[in-house]
Write a protein that binds this DNA or RNA. Structure first.
Lengths: 232, 232
DNA sequence: ACACTATGTCGTCAAGTGATGACATTCAGG
DNA sequence: CCTGAATGTCATCACTTGACGACATAGTGT
């Protein structure tokens, strides 16, 4: 079907970007390059079709034979593990920790910028679908990510918000985490709605983030001021 | 489970609750009863193992032969569709609409009660996993649920909160939905964290809900009061 | 006892499914 | 040109998986 190319193919010249039917080998690539290409394609592929999708379909999407996958990864599980490491853990920017602590700017502006970037860099359709498939399949996937990265983020955020508002925070770590989750969860769920549920609104993302952040800051202040002053 | 009757059943005594190895038929059930039992087991089964899990494993979990499944459902897809209808759409309580509009009680108390019940009735591990598997596999699943039920809930909530606070709401429906999603999404994400990510805190659920609701109410008021009064 | 129907199982088929051995092609270095 | 390693494919194996025909058993009415 795809061998419909316009003939005149000189002597041996390998054709590019065509299906996998002939016997003619496709363009040869050095090991590292081919592996990177497979991982890139696999990220997209498993994100869309789930971790139970078949290696043959992945190979076809890569434009290579199924056998070739096994020159780079001993088993499908090893391939999945590498995809997970790259796609899930590889999008976090350490600069966020710095920027969120820049007290020369109002916390509202810092949070607006951070979450705008976090939505664009981490909470993408691809990341969310992979993360969800992995979480559903393996109970240990999500906790590692959350414990390793998100918790630090949450602690930093409550600290910065409280500092700007001059409120005293209780010592209960779990309570503080949960308070920061109010914002982080709401924005995460907004991304889930858009990319997984396909039920996003027509509002521009910026506006949603700004509303979320502003409501959070006001709610946070109200809540912890009232907590700190039990007297009516 | 029900065939646990006290034995003494004459000559042929079919064994119970055992694997499917002999050839001895299991306890016979009338059509409707067996179908209900299959659907119940299938809900649990597919929720745990995903929609791509195998009919043979499901049959074993039901304690019946794989062939018997096909006496009740023409294909696996038909079975999945019935499971989805029962498990996803069948837990919504219409009484919630009534209770949320009971203005003899403060909106905070109404929201606390509602979300406590919503978490217990809808946002269970089983419901969430099924909903997520279905959303990932079929882009049309989640929007149907959200458009059919949740949107009405969101509109009711913003309306009730605004009424108690005496604030004027803008006309932008999408903005109002998004505002209510701040609370609904944060609580949904809390459930996702607990049941899908296995990363829940040690705080009791009641307390988390109360904090979410209180922060939302304060943030909502602050946000829409400021929106309505652009001056000062 | 007899037949009839509903309930339930065994065995099997055809299409897939991860994985692997054997073989083909390219290319650098002598 | 020769050689050997790297890159790539085909064919295939053993096992899975949805689906179904043929058959077995239990309960019921007559």
């Amino acid at each position: 079907m795809k061998a419909r190319s316009t003939s005149l193919r000189g002597t041996k010249k390998p054709r590019e970007a065509s299906g996998a039917e002939g016997g003619t080998p496709r363009s040869r690539l050095p090991h590292a390059e081919r592996k990177a290409q497979i991982l890139e394609t696999a990220g997209r592929f498993f994100s869309e079709h789930g971790l139970t999708a078949q290696t043959r379909a992945l190979a076809q999407e890569c434009g290579i034979s199924q056998r070739l996958l096994y020159r780079f990864f001993p088993t499908k599980e090893d391939l999945l593990a590498e995809v997970y490491r790259e796609e899930i853990l590889g999008h976090f920017k350490s600069v966020w920790f710095v920027e969120l602590q820049d007290r020369s700017r109002p916390i509202e502006a810092r949070l607006n910028d951070f979450y705008k970037d976090y939505l664009a860099s981490v909470l993408t359709r691809r990341w969310l679908r992979l993360f969800m498939y992995a979480s559903l399949a393996d109970a240990r996937m999500a906790p590692d990510y959350i414990a390793g990265v998100v918790i630090q983020l949450l602690e930093l955020i409550v600290q910065e918000v409280a500092a700007e508002q001059g409120v005293d925070l209780p010592d209960d770590k779990d309570l503080l985490h949960e308070a920061a989750w109010v914002l982080h969860g709401a924005i995460s769920h907004y991304a889930i709605r858009r990319h997984l549920y396909h039920a996003g609104s027509t509002l521009p993302e910026d506006r949603v983030v700004r509303m979320q952040v502003r409501m959070f800051i006001a709610g946070f202040q109200s809540y912890f001021e009232a907590e700190a002053e039990p007297s009516g």
